[in-house]
Amino acid sequence: MAVATQDSAVRTGRATRFVLYTVLLVFALFYLLPLFIMLVNSVKPLGEITGGSMIALPQTWTFEPWAKAWSEAQVGVEATGLRPYFWNSIRMVVPAVLISTILGALNGYVLTKWTFRGATVLFGLMLFSCFIPFQIVLIPMARVLGEIGLAGTTTGLVLVHVVYGIGFSTLYFRNYYAAFPTELVRAAQIDGAGFFQIFWRIMLPSSGPIIVVCVIWQFTNIWNDFLFGASFASGSAAPMTVALNNLVQSSTGVKEYNVHFAGAIMAALPTLLVYIVAGRYFVRGLMAGSVKG
């Protein structure tokens, strides 16, 4: 085997390889350092942080900061911890991701398989929404939410994220379905399947990779959003990101860095989890359509 690789492969010098791997290793460590510091300091008593080095491993291991961040810390008016806000985020992200993904899939299906005059222009306009900065729509959006009575609610946030998400989800599904053979749709039409039957029975079951891509993308964006959360759902309806900010920024009492670190990790965990579970489909899904088969 070794002989084969040496003879057939393009050879890279040993020295070059050594340098390459060293540099990569250094970069990897550099990027892992913040995570390391967060983890280490979230399991230390506060005294060890204020009194000593942040990089050192804890002398006394304690999960007190985690418990405190979750259920006791002063975030809003009551000392509730991050727990209610975490559930706020879940209640926001799950429907928002599901609705925007399903609408995107339907849009992609119509734009590629039931094309009509002006479909391309319409798609272009939808794509436009991907490039509109959030800040521009803050005031009109606040106005609309107020008019329909959803200001300051999680439902209102779901609506905002669905509207913003449709652009991207439509882009994903349209491009995926453009490579999907139209003959299949025609065959199903002759077989007597209707618009939604074709969608549920033929299109969606073949859309696994792109659904994963869309879900990861939407989940990450919506979960991590701060601006819309802070603008449209303050107080007890605030999502996790806003609550974390409130926790860290609180100006009363001692700064409990260990609790802040624990809270920050909690806020990041769901997106990390989604990446770990579905990450390999992400790359596969992004490549789908570019290479046949």
């Binding site: 053979p181 003959e183 299949l184 025609r186 065959a187 199903a188 039409q189 002759i190 077989d191 007597g192 399947a193 029975r201 033929i202």
Partner: peptide, 15 residues
């Protein structure tokens, strides 16, 4: 679907 016809496609178009 209401013409009582059946079609075989070039790519077979199997689901």
């Amino acid at each position: 679907s209401k013409r009582n016809i059946a079609m075989v496609f070039q790519s077979y178009a199997l689901y």
